[in-house]
Design a protein around this nucleic acid. Structure first.
Lengths: 154, 154
DNA sequence: ATTGTTTACCCACAATTACCCACAATATAT
DNA sequence: ATATATTGTGGGTAATTGTGGGTAAACAAT
């Protein structure tokens, strides 16, 4: 068995440079299947962070959106909000991608970037925001968390 | 009958070298099924030790995580905390794997490593931490321990 | 058109990691 | 018992990785 393609795990600390570039961890670049053509799609996460999808994974989301009826107003709003912050980025010869100021602001990113593999996607966090959000989630839903752990961890 | 694949038993003492490498006991390397491609996934244990999974066993966990809906914040926190400390490592021609400083610190590992087979996974301990934790568990839960022994042993 | 600004594509370099080779100690085979 | 292979441990070296800039093309605004 070979290592799963388009699967990301681990945490990494990087710095965002003056031009708004961040390194994609070498391990993640190697996990990215060749069909993605060294390309990700970045967008707003549900938490205050940036979500990074392999291109092909994002295309599946787009296909699902295409199947939504445009008759319903709520459908149209959903499509708009899903797509409007998304942009396609390829990494340069040094393995970095460019982050728009829009996304940087949304995720409150300054200089330190904390990158986490989330299995099928990647998250880019301001370290202190991450600590805050995770703490809050655990405090408010610890029993659900334990139930998940019981079900999944070997 | 051949020896069970991906099943680990026994205890071994090894040294962690200056580069953070530890040997995987030869017996464990031989128990590792070929599908794993000489690869483990190492992560934080629930105790202060390092957990080492055969790659294929870990991929089952990953598949379960992929099925969790990303809409729920607690789900996202759970995924994060489950995979953020995990990394894929293959052993080199001498049979060693590299441990990140992050995991070394977590398990309070310095130079001596005590490696224990835990049936479906492997644990890497600082010997003195192991003694401490086991002693504590036995003192506080001896009746439960006896109940388990009664149910499972021989 | 002439600016000024942003983006794409280079090059550089220190630090880390991957990939060798060496060797003593133990185990296995003949 | 002696030879041969395997195992655990230590290093050396070359390649990779993360980070900083430089420069020229592309774009926007005046």
């Amino acid at each position: 068995m070979t290592i799963n393609q388009d699967t990301f795990t681990g945490e990494f600390s990087y710095t965002i440079d003056a031009k708004g570039r961040v390194n994609i961890p070498a391990k993640f670049r190697q996990s990215l299947a060749p069909e993605n053509d060294q390309t990700f799609v970045i967008t707003r996460g549900m938490d205050p962070c940036i979500w990074v999808y392999p291109l092909t994974a994002w295309q599946i989301i787009e296909d699902d959106l295409k199947d939504l009826s445009a008759i319903s107003g709520i459908n149209r709003s959903f499509i708009r909000n899903t797509v409007r912050y998304a942009s396609t980025v390829s990494f340069d010869k040094q393995g970095r991608i460019m982050l728009s100021t829009n996304l940087l602001n949304y995720a409150k990113l300054k200089k330190d970037a904390f990158i986490i593999g989330m299995v099928n996607k990647i998250e880019i966090w301001n370290p202190s925001e991450l600590a805050k959000v995770d703490k809050q989630n655990l405090e408010m839903n610890s029993s659900e968390y334990d139930a998940l752990a019981d079900r999944i961890i070997l």
